[in-house]
Design a protein around this nucleic acid. Structure first.
Lengths: 242, 242
DNA sequence: CTCCCTATCTTTACATCGTAAAGATCGGAT
DNA sequence: ATCCGATCTTTACGATGTAAAGATAGGGAG
């Protein structure tokens, strides 16, 4: 009776107890979270270790492979260990998305630094946006897969908010107006929504393979980045963007 | 010893066999798929019944509740019945997405008919696009949740392709060029990508609640539709859309 | 030093899900 | 009438999320 859950899920020793101090060693070699191996043995940095394991699993097996148990397996702990740190699958995904938003913000910021001409400055952010999504498709997928996230978590809320604020600021700067904290005119809101919708929509469609049809019909060897550039700079001939 | 799957999953009689013709009756009242109760008893139109059940489950319980077993339950059949018609969860989702694309195409087509002025004609499609997503958020979610779909299925491929062709045609018509079947200039591709990205991105952000921050800061009572309109018609002051 | 308390991790258990395989049922062709 | 193939049901199994109880430290209070 009850034959479930009885195949060596963790494959760890879990013996050799009986009090011997057992500070280091006897552990299957942690993966050197940072330099110098702070917290070398098991206790201490499980939370971060799990997040890094989750990122690894996500990039290796995609969204479908990103399960609580797979992450625990990757980190070398029991399948219920993540519960104590994240409470929930939603909790883990939310914290991982927060990590993604912080990576994303850093990438956007550094992209703006290297730009020189006004045109380059204007194109740097959109390009960095798409580039991040192409390099980290799994992360981008999580960050905008809202139904599995909990935005009441402060870390996620703050990181995502910073992302939005950076975008709004960039738009405002380009229009040579400062965006006052609270209110927006309709035209300001429209400019922000247009820019964000365009870049986010392009990225989503690109990652979903929806732009393949278009790219194939363009002149030989046109890259997605080139199409993005044209999309942002080409003259608008119809008075309406659509 | 194997105590799984033994709680009345279907709750159907499944007795009373022994040959009595048993054409109609003895069934828990089907939900009247169309008028006059065609195929009143069990056999016959299970495939369509399952698709309708799936749509119902999706609108009631959201994407998370849309499982093979839930659909079977909703349709009043055993949990393995869908397998024979769709093979797979991916199969069911793909066929359901195809239904969605057909609904979507119909909505877009009928929206263009009722427009009179040129401006109305230009705004009809985007508005219908967003409106469909707002009325059928679950369907829209499935249609663009690529990782769970199989585009090699003809029904899905055709319906989605028709959707794209309609969009490309509308853009071409607006630019007063006909889009030749094969090739596209960079500017043509850019125009299509811009329009699609803008509307799709706006829709996605809106459904994910990402535009709430913007909408709240706009003049009192500005709706999403009004923001969309402004986004599509407001003057572009920076020479770059972003 | 000993004892106990709390945070952390492991075990065990269970409901649910997707899917495969074998059994039942029914309509229609031979 | 009988057999066959399509359709549906049963049964079974591995995997997952989650809850609950047991184990294992590390760190104070006495």
């Amino acid at each position: 009776m009850a034959k479930t859950d009885t195949k060596g899920e963790t494959a760890r020793s879990s013996r050799a107890s009986s009090r011997t101090t057992s500070t280091a060693a006897s552990r299957p070699a942690r993966r050197a979270t940072s330099a110098k191996t702070e917290t070398p043995y098991h206790h201490g940095a499980l939370r971060e270790a799990l997040l890094q394991a989750a990122e690894r699993v996500l990039e290796r097996d995609g969204l479908a492979g990103l399960t609580l148990r797979a992450v625990a397996r990757e980190a070398g702990v029991s399948h219920a260990a993540p519960t104590h740190h994240f409470g929930d699958l939603t909790g883990l995904l939310s914290e991982l998305a927060a990590v993604g938003f912080r990576q994303f913000n850093a990438a956007m910021a550094s992209a703006c630094d290297t730009a020189t001409t006004p045109l380059e400055r204007a194109l740097a952010r959109p390009k960095a946006y798409v580039a991040y999504a192409q390099v980290h498709p799994g992360m981008y997928g999580i960050m905008f897969r809202t139904e599995r996230l909990d935005y009441s978590r402060p870390s996620l809320h703050e990181a995502a908010e910073a992302s939005f604020a950076g975008l709004a600021n960039a738009i405002g700067m380009m229009r040579q107006e400062q965006i006052s904290g609270d209110a927006l005119t309709l035209n300001q809101g429209a400019a922000i929504a247009r820019a964000w919708s365009m870049v986010h929509g392009f990225t989503t469609l690109l990652l979903d393979g929806r732009l393949k049809d278009i790219l194939e019909r363009l002149p030989e060897g046109t890259t997605a980045e080139r199409l993005l550039e044209a999309m942002l700079t080409a003259p608008i001939t119809t008075k309406l963007p659509m």
